[in-house]
């Protein structure tokens, strides 16, 4: 895409925008005009990714986020054309969206919807039962054949749906790491392994570390952890499995190279 007379009037605005102080009151209005002016570019790029399983509206929104980033980061002082900066920035944003939602490209919509319903059923049933539900209980709750629920659970396992899990996770009620792992920490102090686990645990992201501590030193079930940390049981399950694999590789790198 090269300079287009349709956008020529925006070039001076870009220069003005990039010269403004971060707290300048004119920024917002200028940015709105730039976003509106360049919007056809974002729409054009979004349409190129259409029919890959994501609604066009979502794609346009993601592309617009990319456009805003491009407008914010473009520096006319460095020379170069806005388009040659903006197009890769916007496409990159859309590609990242697909990568984060990676399973939506490959999994039939039906299974994706099922994952959402199953997740909802699991959290409702866990509350009433006081434990995680069985496939038959989920099936009854959703009025679906057990086989379909099994298929949905399998799909959830096969396709790393972490971004979907993130979307479904509520931030409410999640306690802080320190609050949760106090007892578990004390338990870890009491055991002495051949391997030195503590430095490896310290390298983990806080949430992964919390989950591992609660499961293996805090005597909590996955369902209990899910409600304490504020994410779904399936998400806890996936994070635990991933973290265990990582810890195992780090604890014993030599023997696992087979």
């Amino acid at each position: 895409m090269t300079a287009d007379p349709e956008y020529a009037h925006l070039t001076p605005l870009l220069e003005e925008y990039s010269g403004l102080e971060p707290d300048d009151p004119r920024r917002e209005e200028l940015r709105d005009r730039l976003v509106t002016g360049y919007l056809p570019v974002a729409q054009h790029i979004a349409r190129r990714f259409n029919h890959r399983g994501e609604p066009l509206d979502d794609l346009v929104q993601v592309a617009t986020v990319g456009l805003i980033n491009a407008i914010d980061r473009f520096d006319p002082g460095k020379g170069g054309e806005f388009f040659s900066f903006a197009v890769p920035t916007i496409s990159g944003e859309v590609r990242r969206h697909f990568r984060d939602q990676s399973w939506s490209m490959r999994v039939p919509r039906r299974l994706k919807d099922m994952h959402v319903s199953i997740n909802g059923a699991v959290s409702e049933l866990s509350q009433t039962l006081g434990r995680s539900p069985k496939p038959s209980e989920i099936a009854r709750h959703l009025d679906l054949p057990v086989n379909e629920v099994l298929e949905g659970l399998e799909a959830a396992e096969a396709y790393r749906s972490s971004s979907l899990d993130e979307m479904l996770s509520s931030e409410d009620g999640s306690a802080t790491v320190g609050e949760l792992v106090g007892d578990a920490d004390a338990e870890l102090d009491r055991v002495d392994y051949r391997e030195s686990l503590r430095p490896l645990l310290a390298e983990l992201a806080p949430r992964e570390r919390t989950i591992v501590m609660l499961r293996f030193f805090g005597n909590r079930t996955q369902t209990q952890i899910a409600s304490e940390v504020g994410i779904s049981q399936m998400h806890v399950s996936r994070l635990l499995a991933q973290t265990l694999t990582r810890l195992r590789d780090r604890l014993d790198p030599g023997e696992r190279a087979l």
Binding site: S132, K134, P135, L150, Q222, Q233, M234
Partner: peptide, 14 residues
């Protein structure tokens, strides 16, 4: 899963 274990038990066994 086919033996109708609860989800925690399925994941733990795995």
């Amino acid at each position: 899963a086919r033996a109708d274990f609860d989800l925690d038990a399925i994941s733990d066994l795995r």
